[in-house]
Design a protein around this nucleic acid. Sequence first.
DNA 1: CGAGCAGTATTGATATACAAGCAGCTGTCG
DNA 2: CGACAGCTGCTTGTATATCAATACTGCTCG
Lengths: 236, 236
Amino acid sequence: MAGSNQRRTSRRTVYEALRRKVLTLELPPGTALSENELAASLKVSRTPVRESLILLSEEGLVQIFPQVGSFVSRVDPARVADAQFLREAVEMASLDDLPAELDTDLVEELRQNLRDQQRPGLDIEGFFALDEAFHQGLLRLSGHGSAWTTVALAKGHLDRARRLGLHETSSASFAAQHVEILDAVVRGDVTLARTAMRTHLRAVFNDVERIREHSPELFATDSGSAPVRRNVVVWE
Amino acid sequence: MAGSNQRRTSRRTVYEALRRKVLTLELPPGTALSENELAASLKVSRTPVRESLILLSEEGLVQIFPQVGSFVSRVDPARVADAQFLREAVEMASLDDLPAELDTDLVEELRQNLRDQQRPGLDIEGFFALDEAFHQGLLRLSGHGSAWTTVALAKGHLDRARRLGLHETSSASFAAQHVEILDAVVRGDVTLARTAMRTHLRAVFNDVERIREHSPELFATDSGSAPVRRNVVVWE
DNA sequence: CGAGCAGTATTGATATACAAGCAGCTGTCG
DNA sequence: CGACAGCTGCTTGTATATCAATACTGCTCG
């Protein structure tokens, strides 16, 4: 990807900025996202803002109610479970596709990643970025790196839920599991790698359930619609 | 989903119409899709057309070259392989999640589907629709029906390739494999179901390889860009 | 024959206006 | 006091016109 140059292409910028703010919970679930307000805040017209909101709604991160407003969607447990199933299926399958000879450069990159994960003073966002890179890296080892984009696109709800409940202790525990997985992969022990991976992903998922009990207001109720909370100041 | 009423919501309509035409190869790979021409043909403004093209480009079905034009993307073997990996991972994983007691209504629905598949005189599009419904139905048996939307969104390239090479003979063969899979599932023989499913999906994939040799002009070359063919009449 | 230059078509973005519909407020009437 | 009708304002959806930026075409001129 020799990245498109596109000097002032603002849709990409707006989309990525909004997406990041939604995923990091800087824009918490339920926040009203007015096209006009966003356009004014970002100094662009409604068009790129609107296009970005449409894309985010396709991802499920934003809900658009036609003549009412657009809102950051609440975390939907059903979508979290879907994303969990999807990523688990993909990551487990990729372990079965590992080649006999691993890409040594990539392995070293992953080892460095794991060292960084254990660096003291690492904040939540930093850990998340490394976590993402690690899991995508594992997929690349089996030649399915680009499948990660689909997984990433589908797991927005899962990521938001996880971010709510990541503590230093849990991230340290996850980092240790990462080491266990990579060690098994490098040793060629697919069975152990599968077990470790499954344990790891399930631990992540169980974390989500705990979070839901802790802060239910960020999760969707069973009834479909609902938000309709207006006049929420957005964007600083 | 009790579908939004939205009397004259045209973006959804335009998007779905375009998507269908692309997937059914009514708009073959390489076709130029001018925003202005489409808007004129569909009697709508550039706005919904443009939004639809953006969505399709996110799916990879359309390529937008900023100051050149928009084109139906050629079938990308890499994306076909990705989609194959993804669907295989998901469908195999769902077989592992089958409950002890299957939903009898759903099973009957699937049996009826298979009977329809063997109806003589069934055309390609009809078979495709049934095939889609069957695979999604299997996912629903294990409670992961909604994961199909993600899979479906990612496998546009795969579907187009398959559509190129579906004959009556191959579809009859696929229908037989479907029966084998469902029988194994109903009997609770997960091992056999997995084997049958793997064989089936791989057969589908191998079909694609054969097609690529047969009509290479619909596939993307290794070099990234390329199309730049203008003045292609579109849309009847 | 080749190089350069204007012309034209394309998408990206802006600005404006109107359509359609929901929410809440207010005033009125029972 | 309470209920209800209508009005007002705000939202997204679409239309339309215009400009900007850029890539290809084809002609002109050397």
